[in-house]
Structures are given as C-alpha cells and as structure tokens.
Simulated scan of single mutants.
Amino acid sequence: MTGPVFRFAPSPNGELHLGHAYSALLNARMAAETGGRLLLRIEDIDVARCTPQFEEGIYRDLAWLGIEWEQPVRRQSDHFDDYAEALDRLVDAGLAYPSFMSRGEVRAIIAEAETEGHEWPRDPDGAPLFPETERRLSQREREARMQAGDPYAWRLDTRAALAHVGGPIFWEEQGHGPQGQTGLLRANPTAWGDVVIARKEVPTSYHLSVVVDDALQGVTHVVRGRDLFFATAMQRLLQELLGLPAPVYVHHDLVLGDDGRKLSKSRQDTGLATLRAAGLTPDDIRRMVGL
C-alpha cells in the first residue's frame, strides 16, 4: 500500500487533553485528505510513569473522537531490541559515550562557572547544556566504571557526529516554527549539546526511539506540536547517522490554556475524559480546537 503515512504517538503517562485531540484530529484529517494512512504508536519507554490504564484511556478517547487507525499498534516497550541495535551502531562508530555524572554534580559544575561570571549555554528548551568533562574520559576509565556497576547514560557526541556527517543537515517544514520558519530549514543540532540517547537500564531515549520507529513504520509525514520544532534538528542528525529516511515535518500551533501556557496532562479541566463526562460531544471538541 502506497501513499503518505501519518502517525499519532502519545505517551500513556496521563490522560489525553485538548492539545492531543487537536494533533490527533489534524493527523487524521490530513491522512484522509491525501488518501494516506494513519498509524497509532504508544510511546511508553518510560516504564515507571506509563501505565496500561492510561493506554486504555488513549484508545477510548480516540475512538470517542471518531478516529480510526491501522492495526497493530506499535508499543515502544515491545521493541527495545530495535533501539539497542541502533545504539550499538552509534557506540561502535565512536559517536556515543557513557556519562556518569549525577544531576547534582552537573548542577555544581554549572553553579561554579556562573559564580565565576561565565554564562552557561542553554538548549532551546532553556535547560543547561551538559558539561563536556566526560567526553574527555579515557576508554579505560569508562570501561572500568561500567564494569564497576556505576549508573550511566549514553550521550551522543554531537561534535563527532556532525563531523561524521560531514556537511549541513536540512529538513522540509510544511508547518511553521515559533518565528514562522517554514520551507527547507537548516538543522542546528549543536544547540542541544550532547543529548542522552539511552540509559544503562533502558537502551533508548525519546530522540533515538522516535527516529527508529518512524523509519521502521514508513512514516512520511510527522505532524506534531510546535513545542517539538527545535527537537527536529537532533532527530535529523540521528537519521543521517543511522542512514534513515527523513519525513516531511508539519509543526502546528499549540492549544493554550486560559493562562496562555501550553496544556499539560496535569490540567484535568482540559482532559478529554473529563470533558466527555461533562456532556461534551466530539463535535464540541472539534469546535474547541478549531477543526
């Protein structure tokens, strides 16, 4: 079967809200308008926070909205081997390294630098970039600490990764970014520093699993909220490193709360289950999100 492939990929760590409804309905509409397919993916690599109850709620809410998706549903927790294989490729190529610093140690390094008057660089989400200290650890020290059982996370060596790619990276944006960016855009992965791509106990992270999943599922159009616009740069880098195809990206506006902030799963007043219990209909939801 050919044609565009879209996907809606929620995490079952809370109830879906109006923002999720907008994204799911927009994906479904674009799939219908283009004669494409709509897939549903459950992004549950955070096994501590994701629950079967929330997953069942996702199916219930989407069915109530009248959204139909192809079976089977891909559940990320069933495919850790796929992500481990991709991670091994990056490690074997010398593009990822284990980092052992705790959050407290990282905070202390940043605080010391700022006390000395240095402005610490931050990523597009406002979080401080990871210090470069552990990038310089010897292979012998890394192996010794791993064998000793020290907790660690795998981080992408972004500088080495960009050198490995050997040229600029772009993506096709058919939606728009926070400043209206659209068209063929140049990615800037260095803005994120050395991101976590896996952990000792879980062989993946959001960035790694999403690019592997999109490739394995043949996704051609990634339609998602504008809050993930800048994350596209890191995902495009991983696609280039792993030889994966690049989808078209469509970043859409966010559904905001009364206070002007984006909705979160903690806001029960915008939860679809709460709104349904209050007597609202799927048509009411479509009107509320502008569809």
Rank of each mutant, 00 (worst) to 15 (best):
A48H: 10
H17C: 05
R103Y: 01
H251V: 04
I285L: 05
G225Q: 02
S11D: 08
H221P: 02
D283K: 04
V165Y: 04
Q268I: 08
V91T: 07
V248K: 07
G19A: 05
K262I: 06
Q235E: 06
Y152K: 00
L39R: 08
A187K: 07
E55R: 12
V255G: 04
R122Y: 09
D284T: 11
Q239D: 13
R103D: 01
L291T: 10
V165E: 08
A215W: 11
K265N: 02
D92E: 15
F170G: 05
G66P: 12
Q217A: 13
V91W: 05
A113F: 06
L184D: 04
R267W: 14
R107H: 11
A233C: 06
F230A: 15
Y83D: 08
A233W: 02
R75K: 14
V250N: 01
A278M: 05
V106Y: 01
R199I: 03
T204K: 03
T51K: 00
F230E: 15
D78I: 04
V47T: 15
W171P: 03
D78F: 10
R186D: 08
F229G: 02
W69I: 03
A187V: 05
D125G: 14
P52Y: 11
D214Y: 05
P72M: 06
A28S: 13
A246E: 08
E132F: 08
E85F: 08
G218E: 09
G35L: 11
Y83E: 02
P203V: 04
G149C: 15
F170M: 00
L272G: 02
E43P: 00
L263S: 00
L39D: 00
D88Q: 10
W64L: 06
L238H: 01
R224Q: 01
R276H: 06
P151L: 07
T133N: 11
V196M: 06
R276F: 02
H79I: 12
R41T: 06
A198H: 09
T115D: 14
N27Q: 13
Q174S: 00
E172I: 10
T133F: 10
A198I: 11
G218H: 03
R140G: 05
G225V: 12
G126L: 07
S77P: 04
E116M: 01
Q139F: 09
L26C: 03
T204S: 07
A113H: 13
F100M: 02
R224Y: 12
R155F: 06
E105P: 11
L156H: 12
P98D: 13
T270R: 02
S102A: 12
I197F: 06
V211R: 01
P124S: 11
G36F: 07
V5K: 02
D269A: 15
D92T: 11
R276N: 10
L238M: 09
R140S: 09
V223Q: 00
Y206D: 14
L87V: 09
Q217V: 10
T133S: 12
